[in-house]
Structure formats: structure tokens, C-alpha cells
Amino acid sequence: MPDVAPAPAADAPPAATDLVLDLRGVVKRYREGDATRDVLKGADLAMERGLVGALVGRSGAGKSTLLNLVSGIDAPDAGTVAVDGVSLGDLSERERTLFRRRHVGFVFQFYNLVPTLTVAENVRFLLDLDGAPDAGPRARALLEEVELADRADAFPDRLSGGEQQRVAIARALAHDPGLVLADEPTGDLDARTGALILDLLERLTRERGRSLLMVTHDESILQRVDAVYRLADGTVVREAGGR
């Protein structure tokens, strides 16, 4: 008998729960030469479905590490990570990959677009991997929403930074994930463009009733989110957002 659910379980919709994120007692450590450094030391984080949250903390505190655990890219050394009611520790590596691909969207600071694919191909990339029959129409609709329909056939290197990030947002939403993670989504943009990108990302996730967790150093963002999760000394403390 296998000790994890079979791979098709990743196709099933997440279990109903009020929490989109539920991290309990999460420990993550890394070896640095002959020493071991504990980045997360029993961190807890609960985030209700439909919220927009900000994850803050000093550089090196472990914010990207936490996002990698939430997305299933990495696994904790102790504790549990549940996303949309699914315990990632109960899944195999392949199942975690499928779950991430179908239920989690990711927006990166440096866009991470595939340079050899057009804008439209980047947006529909994950849909094509899953053989979605409506990949083309869904990509076109999202490009309309981010006001880039006229650049569908362009390659990423022909776009500005703000345009590339709009493509990245469309790609993150293409498979209609329950949770969107954004790692410093405005960190490589000027203040005006960053504000426009933030407006777009927040609006599109709220309109869909989805959850958004952003890593940020921009204190102004804290005034527009529902909850702030402050990471320090390996643990997470929740604060009220400014919204």
C-alpha cells in the first residue's frame, strides 16, 4: 500500500475550509558549511480564504523560504503546511508539483517569463501542460484584462518591466488558482509603475474572490491589505492590515 494518495488526487478540488493557508509549527533549517541555521523555528500562519495579506520582515528573515514551503517547492523539516485544506506533507513530490501547477499562482519580482515564448504562449503555458481545451480563449481574455491584447504575439524582451509583470500576473491567474503568491512583485519597478501593478494584482484577485499573499518591503502596501504577517526570529506574528 502506498503511504500517500495516488497522483490523481492532485486533480481533485481542495477540501472546503475557511483557511486558504494553515501552517503549524513549521521548522526549516539549512546547512551552511559545518553549521546548521534554523530559518523558521516553529512558525504558525493562518490566513482566511479571500484575504489579501502581506508578508514582511527584514532581508534574510525567511520570507522567500516560507513562500517556497507554501507553494510546495520545498518541504519543512518539521510541522505541517496546508493549502486550501490539502496537507502538502501528504503528497509526493510529483503530486506537490501538480497541486502547485493547478491551485497556486506565482508572481515573481523578475517576472520569470520564458523568453522564447510569445506573450500569449507565456500566459497559456501551464494550461497547455494540462491539455486545457480552452487555453487560447482564456489567455486572450486575461490579456484583455491586463490591457496587453495588442502585444499577444510579442516576445518578452520587447516589453517594458511593467508590461512583463502584467503578463506574469495574467499567467498566474490563467488556471484560476485559489491562492496567488507574489514575491516582491513591485521590487524591480519604479514607484509609479509599481503602484499600477499593485492595483491590478489586488483588483484581479479580489474580483475573483481569490487569496493573495505578497512578500514586500514597501510599507505603503500595508495600508491596503487585510492582514500583515511579520516574520522575525523564525516565527510569524499576525498584525491587522490598514484596509
Rank of each mutant, 00 (worst) to 15 (best):
L98K: 11
R230H: 13
P133N: 05
V107E: 06
L212I: 11
M47H: 00
M1T: 13
V20L: 12
A232D: 14
L142P: 11
D128L: 15
D188A: 15
A54R: 11
E93D: 10
P185I: 12
A227Y: 08
V86R: 15
D38N: 14
R124F: 03
A172K: 14
V81G: 01
K28N: 02
M47N: 02
E202S: 04
T193N: 07
V114K: 05
L55I: 13
R100W: 00
E207Q: 04
L21C: 12
R37L: 15
G72S: 00
P133I: 10
E32N: 15
L148E: 00
A16T: 06
T118G: 03
V104D: 13
A154G: 09
V4G: 05
L231N: 08
G62L: 06
P14D: 13
L148T: 07
T36S: 12
D157W: 13
L127Y: 09
D18T: 09
V180W: 01
A12T: 06
A170H: 13
R224S: 07
A132M: 02
V83A: 10
T235L: 09
L21G: 00
G89S: 00
D3R: 08
L213E: 02
L159I: 12
N68D: 14
T216M: 05
R224M: 08
G33H: 02
R31F: 09
A12E: 12
H103V: 06
L98E: 13
S87T: 03
L88M: 07
E121F: 07
P137S: 07
A195K: 14
L69S: 08
F99M: 05
V119A: 04
L143S: 05
E93H: 01
A61W: 07
G242Q: 02
A12C: 09
A149G: 04
G242L: 06
L189G: 06
F108L: 04
R101H: 09
H175D: 12
V107A: 00
H103T: 03
T80P: 00
E147V: 05
G161Y: 11
R24K: 15
